[in-house]
């Protein structure tokens, strides 16, 4: 077993995340990280730039890297050694951020993903939300923008709600109209945001239950992991459901996919090396 450098690249719908690790058996050292917002740019070109910038900051050169693991929408990334799918990587990444976690809830712009894993990151079951988007992060972002609220204000405001207003419509466009109606009825931004958080939380709690995650720590990852209002709503939903789940976040939650990819990359690299020796 020897020391190796491994990197993870996670291309999401709005943002690119890259990380670099030094791995030696069970010893794992995080050397660097970088995010870049896509905003109408070519994601692959941007990835190249962000990746090089990260390596430079970490003092690593491309040739030092043993395994470049991609995840997310990066199946076609030209310089990747191998690709892992996002639920594989988020499970592992969540575990890295919180070794006690036995489930991960990855909340992205369009889909939510629930993953249940064991103590070494092996995925036991998982499920994605699909279909209509009124419960998605994208919807929340649109509404916040409409209400004139910055991303980092959402959580604080939501937690000040005293009488959350439920969004009933299934279709996001009609739900948006619901929200406009609420504003016209004088409902506060706090109560609107909390209402959206609650309906998202209920859906996500349903998702967790359906994969058999009914107790223990749930690590929240993905773009919305830092929304404290959503995390609070999740814990309330869990309490209402009388399940012993505790949703927690981590400042580096957004990197979970990239971290997981990098760590599985190392795992795979060693496995391949062993197989190579055997052959």
């Amino acid at each position: 077993m020897s020391e190796l450098i491994t990197t993870g690249v996670d291309i999401g719908s709005g943002c690119i995340k890259t990380v670099v690790f030094k791995v030696n058996g069970d010893k794992v050292e995080w050397l660097g990280k970088e995010t870049a917002r896509i905003r109408n740019r070519d994601p692959f070109q941007l990835t190249n730039e962000a990746y090089d910038h990260m390596l430079k900051t970490a003092g690593v050169s491309r040739s030092d890297v043993s395994y470049v693991a991609s995840t997310g929408d990066a199946e076609n990334l030209s310089f990747a050694t191998g690709h892992f799918y996002s639920m594989t990587t988020h499970g592992r990444g969540g575990l890295y951020l919180n070794p006690e976690a036995r489930a991960v809830l990855d909340i992205g712009a369009l889909n939510g993903r629930a993953i249940r894993m064991d103590g070494v990151g092996k995925v036991l079951s998982y499920k994605m939300t699909s279909q209509c988007a009124s419960g998605s992060g994208q919807f929340l972002e649109n509404i916040a923008r409409y209400l004139g609220i910055a991303q980092d204000e959402i959580g604080t405001l939501s937690m000040q709600a005293d009488d959350p207003e439920k969004v009933s419509s299934i279709c996001a466009v009609l739900a948006e109209t619901d929200v406009i109606n609420m504003v016209s009825r004088g409902i506060s931004a706090s109560n609107i945001l909390k209402g959206i958080h609650v309906s998202m939380a209920v859906r996500l709690a349903k998702l967790l239950k359906s994969i058999g995650a009914v107790d223990g720590i749930v690590q929240v990852t993905g773009g919305l992991a830092l929304d404290a209002g959503l995390v609070a709503a999740l814990n309330e939903a869990a309490e209402q459901e009388k399940v012993n789940l505790k949703a927690v976040s981590h400042p580096d939650s957004i990197y979970a996919g990239a971290i997981g990819a990098a760590l599985w990359g190392a795992f795979r690299h060693e496995k391949l090396a062993r197989l190579g020796q055997a052959a």
Partner: peptide, 11 residues
């Protein structure tokens, strides 16, 4: 209905 959907029944 929510309860049934949580246990795996489709929407």
């Amino acid at each position: 209905i929510m309860e049934a959907e949580k246990s795996g029944h489709s929407e």
